[in-house]
Write a protein that binds this DNA or RNA. Structure first.
Lengths: 201, 201
DNA sequence: AGCTGAACCGGAACGCTGCTCCACTTAATA
DNA sequence: TATTAAGTGGAGCAGCGTTCCGGTTCAGCT
């Protein structure tokens, strides 16, 4: 049997697959991803590596080998949802009449994603460089989408020009920080306020 | 000599003083506060206790005894500036014609304060309960001021009603997170956007 | 001044964490 | 089956917060 047919079918979590790796390595990779996803729900994305390793039934080194930084692990766990969010942008722009409404709905998606993931927003804006790659991945994937929506709304004359997509995304991410522990705080209302501030006077 | 004249004059930092404590304890308290203020500038409010203790030339237990939680230490270091910010609110309301402008200027003060203190905004919104008392102190002191400014602006018909002072303060604090490490991000622009969103349509 | 006990102090020690290193195990090939 | 490179697990180290306790120093009293 030649080597290339050991490339597995796309798994349920953790794309991209790792072709050319040994079967046990690929199995472990998925086990770790599944365990991490479970632990993240209860303990947040800051959960101790030991805890994830214990849940997966592997050693810590296994996790570090597959995901050198914490950001790599978090990225892999949420890759699907980030992709879905990125792809929703152009679709909304095509389906919704007003570009501003498309932008608003897209931001709603983004906020929902951040808010439902325990501590993800915190990690995303963390000044610790432990999460630098996570930051980068979000930006690479979502910034162009945001920019496109923003441009369309500006072209349509619905919002004033001059807003930097990076700053907007970052601000929205910031507003989502700390929602978990505070029922009095709902970032959605403030995000809506921010969007209203964007409108042409 | 009776005991009450050992109450020292108000020191340069770290009110409230601790009357009835021993002289060496009060001296240490001030030394720690001065050291902490210095260390916070370079290493942020998350600086290791050991580092502050070393700079002050005292043991760690001394710091913990005077300031049981990190929040107590941070609060004591910045108490003056927080008080100044709180007192500026009513003054602005009296001096500035438009309550909305007063609100805006007050928020500018608040943002400047947060932005110039390395990591303070991060700490303020941290979900870790290590900073819970800091959160509480900020709220106790500044929330009424914010509410007063907000109400005045609503009464003057300059902004729409319905915004919760807590949510606004929290949002502004959130927007200030992570400014240190990112020159592309200036929270002031977004705060201004948020304020514009507040205006009556 | 000298005494005394309570207040105060310093740093060793403990537990938890991230991360690395290396002797051992196992899967893929010939 | 034999070979070997890839993969693995957990002990070990370093940094941090926090506590604990034997020693020290101050303040009031005689």
């Amino acid at each position: 049997m030649s080597k290339e047919n050991v490339i597995p079918a796309e798994g349920p979590v953790g794309e991209p697959p790792t072709p050319g790796k040994r079967a046990d390595a690929q199995r472990n990779r998925r086990t770790v991803l599944a365990a991490a996803a479970e632990v993240f729900v209860t303990s947040g994305v800051d959960a101790p590596i030991r805890q994830i390793a214990a849940r997966a039934g592997v050693g810590m080194a296994t996790i570090y080998r597959h995901f050198p930084t914490r950001a790599d692990l978090v990225t892999a766990v949420y890759r699907h949802q980030i992709e879905a969010c990125a792809e929703a942008g152009p679709n909304l722009l095509a389906d919704v009449d007003s570009p501003f409404d498309a932008l608003r709905q897209w931001i709603d998606l983004f906020v929902d994603f951040l808010v439902t993931k325990h501590g993800l927003a915190d990690a995303l804006q963390s000044d610790s460089d432990r999460f630098a790659a996570l930051h980068t991945y979000f930006l690479d994937r979502l910034l162009p989408v945001c920019a496109q929506l923003l441009d369309a709304a500006v072209d349509a004359g619905e919002i004033r020009p001059g807003t930097q997509p990076y700053e907007l995304m970052r601000g929205i991410g910031n507003l989502c920080i700390g929602r978990d522990t505070d029922s009095r705080y709902d970032p959605r209302r403030l995000v809506e306020l921010l969007l209203q501030g964007l409108r042409r006077p």
